[in-house]
Write a protein that binds this DNA or RNA. Structure first.
Length: 375
RNA sequence: GGGUAGGUGGCGGAGUGGUCAAACGCAGCAGACUGUAAAUCUGCCGACUUAUGUCUACGGGGGUUCGAGUCCCUCCCUGCCCA
């Protein structure tokens, strides 16, 4: 088994995800390194230092440049990037949703490269081939993440394709890595549930996807424009039925509040660009809530970003808010880098603390107090 | 002293008779960002006002005109060239 459920507090779970590159305590947050690098000049040593457990990279982006064959030439993304912890690769399914120029058919997706407009095709088999070339420790099934259009038929079609592509993804994975080998000795593959905000479609997708022998299950197609309440409703519905002994991954989410709400419903893992992107844009996450560091009120602020934070920026280097305000204002790269380190560190610390509170069976109380502080 | 080019909102800089409180850029103020086409995007940005609206405005003064940032006269100032 690749997942050990250790403590349950309400619906919140603390466990261990075991991969061929080590064990990961859940719940946890994946550091998003789409193109094989965290943006803003944060490197793998920085990730190590902040206790980042897993790196996420993207099939679509690395396929365009430099090409998964090039990465394979270097022995895989681990050797290429210098990250020796577990790597999860996204299948490119999200790009089905986010890219402007594409055409989705039942067999796969025609994309126009956002770099040079060149046309290329991605399907389950190709996605898995690329992910294998990258040397991922956890690969994702190729799915269709539909936009948040409240059209039942559109979402149903995405659900049907996602199931079909999930089966093909699993076959492609098995062709390369026998599932009879322990998941701690081979790359794992996770399936993705779609269904938008439609209860019946979610139900159908959940049943179809969880009937397949994936190593873990992800919820996709959330936080794409629906309200938070709608997202939480889907989580409520899904978590009650997802296999208890498999990791549950909520893809692309979210705010610190989203994370805690999802954990309280039974989610184990997350990824999101929010801590990185918002850092670059001047939004800082702290234990006391959000800071918009570019606001003029921080010009002369001598405090560190967060007294309670143990990250390099706050606890070690003790940079003042005023200095970080200045760096961001004038556009110095250092500002983006430092805020990225802080935000990402905060997310990882939030997950570690979440786990501690679950172990102590105090998660709900703790969460409530944080919610009050952040509101 | 002579000639010449100009003086526009915090700055740069459009504009040449009405649709100008004045393009655009910068600066400023705020907001957004959720499996990264994002070092991006959006809004506000003369004053008083939530807004409608009102007032003061394109170097100063005077004039032409129904109407002037835009035309005329004059004064002041600045850059450049010649003495």
């Amino acid at each position: 088994m690749n997942f050990e459920l250790q403590v349950v507090d309400g619906q919140a779970r603390a466990g261990i995800l075991k991969t061929r590159r080590g064990k990961i305590k859940t719940p946890f947050f994946l550091s998003v390194a789409t193109r094989g690098a965290i943006k803003a000049g944060v490197d793998m040593d920085d990730l190590k230092k902040m206790g980042a457990p897993v790196m996420l990279a993207n099939t679509y982006h690395l396929h365009l440049r430099p090409g998964s064959d090039v990465v394979a030439h270097f022995g895989g993304l681990h050797d290429f990037s210098g990250w020796d912890g577990p790597i999860l690769t996204d299948s490119g399914g999200f790009q089905v949703f986010s890219l402007g120029r594409k055409k989705v058919t039942d067999s796969g997706v025609w994309f126009h490269s956002h770099i040079d407009g060149k046309k290329f095709f991605l399907d389950a088999e190709k996605s898995l081939e690329i992910q294998h070339n990258l040397g991922a420790d956890i690969v994702m099934a190729f799915d269709e993440c539909p936009p948040n259009v409240p059209k039942w038929h559109t979402i149903r079609r995405a659900v049907e394709r996602t199931t079909d592509w999930a089966i093909r993804s699993l076959e492609a994975h098995k062709a390369r890595f026998s599932l009879s080998v322990s998941p701690t000795e081979r790359p794992q593959i996770f399936g993705i549930v779609q269904g938008g905000c439609f209860e019946d479609l979610r139900q159908r997708s959940l049943e179809e996807i969880t009937s397949l022998s994936f190593d873990g299950f992800a919820l996709g197609g959330l936080a794409v424009g629906e309200s938070e309440q709608e997202m939480y409703s889907v989580l409520d519905q899904m978590c009650l039925q997802m296999p208890e002994k498999k990791p549950r991954y909520l893809m692309g989410v979210g705010t610190p509040t989203n994370l805690l709400e999802a954990v309280s419903r039974g989610i184990d893992m997350f990824d999101c660009v929010m801590p990185m992107r918002n850092a670059r844009h001047g939004t800082v996450f702290t234990w006391d809530g959000v800071l918009k560091i570019t606001n003029s009120s921080f010009r002369e602020d001598k405090n560190v970003l967060d007294e309670k934070c143990s990250c390099e920026v706050c606890a070690e280097k003790k940079y003042s808010r005023g200095y970080l305000h200045h760096l961001l204002r004038v556009g110095e790269d250092l500002g983006k880098r430092l805020l990225t380190i802080h935000n990402l560190s905060f997310y990882h610390a939030l997950m570690r603390e979440t786990r501690v509170k679950i172990e102590q069976r105090e998660f709900q109380t703790w969460k409530k107090s944080l919610m009050t502080r952040w509101s």
